[in-house]
Design a binder for these strands. Structure first.
Lengths: 193, 193
DNA sequence: CTCTTTTTTGAATGTTCATTCAAGATATCT
DNA sequence: AGATATCTTGAATGAACATTCAAAAAAGAG
């Protein structure tokens, strides 16, 4: 009979950023209170608890990133160019070193997937959705005639995703922009061969 | 004038396991006390604080894994077979789902590299050492005549490491053993091409 | 054996944590 | 306008946290 006073998306994006800055465990409710401008009671009223807020933020994150992903492909002439542009965008995120440009899903996979079944299943589903989008992408590139070799679209999508996960991790240990973009270029050519 | 009563390596391995089970932030001093059978005061006396214990454990971990790595290659007839065996061992670690078979370095890169400069530099160095070992490996495989294409050993080493990081992350979201080993096989052939 | 130095013990410390709750505010429905 | 349901407020709660410390033990030096 009364709707929440805050903007849910705005709150979730603020929470996303907070979680990306420090990771789930190191982000305290105080941090989240500051980031969202919500009082503890409101957070618990709307999201049940800290983990509920993470799961909601994860959902919002995936929605936002999926839209972004589609925009990148839509802005290019061919799907193959779209894939190149997509990898370029990931490279620039890696190079920026900005925690809020990292991937919240990947961070969550590494930090909590193993510890929490609910998070595990959400993250697993997000990964599958991402992979099936990429599967379609490779189907289109094949139709465009941009693929060499006989690997299935699914295999290519798997290798691409693995490569992106790897790139994101690697770039936290090795920050040389030249190296990062060279690896991405290689990844692109491997996955189209 | 008095040496510590505990076995340092044994304590560090216990701490390693504790950190791998829960991650750095979720592992409490109580967990570490239980795992190492050391009283808080002893831990602080020997390692200064929780982070000091992590850094020491990380060093021990790298030492142990490097020895293991060399053993795997030494047990094979050719360096190329060594690389295959090495990837197989990683696949079986991924498939096991056992947290203590995960990579502590990778976990630490994802959880704390961004937050702590000292950890960042330790982890960056470990990554470089790993990479230079792999660089030698590809040099040897080239001499054996097991490489196609003109990529440098360093580029191949980079791609391999990125692939392994990616595989380890991916396998936490997608647990199908068939898929994991197929991706590893593809990685091996990409990196030798 | 005694002195010195270092480690071990484990309770105590003060802080920070996630969560709760009762009181007050406000939107929507009748 | 009044009733009702829901959200907001922010202080309170108790548990868990990393760390400290003083006292006890023990190892090696002289």
């Amino acid at each position: 009979m009364r709707s929440a006073a805050f903007d849910r998306e705005q709150v979730l994006r603020a929470a996303m950023n907070a979680f990306m800055e420090k990771g789930y465990n190191k982000t305290s409710m105080q941090d989240l209170k500051r980031a969202t401008n919500l009082h503890p009671g409101s957070i618990y009223c709307a999201f049940e608890n800290k983990k509920g807020l993470l799961l909601a933020a994860l959902e919002q994150y995936n929605q936002d990133r999926t839209a972004e992903l589609k925009d990148i492909f839509a802005a290019q002439n061919s799907t193959k160019c779209g894939l190149k542009a997509y990898l370029d965008s990931i490279v620039s995120e890696c190079i920026s070193g900005d925690p809020t440009q990292a991937c919240l899903s990947q961070k969550a996979i590494n930090e909590i997937a193993q510890q929490d079944d609910e998070a595990q299943s959400v993250l697993s589903n997000q990964c599958i959705l991402w992979q099936s989008f990429m599967c379609e992408v490779f189907g289109q590139i094949a139709q465009e005639g941009g693929l060499i070799g006989s690997r299935s679209a699914e295999q290519r999508a798997q290798s691409l995703i693995v490569g992106i996960y790897g790139l994101r991790t690697y770039s936290q240990a090795q920050k040389d922009p030249t190296v990062i973009s060279a690896i991405a270029r290689q990844l692109l050519s491997d996955v189209c061969k």
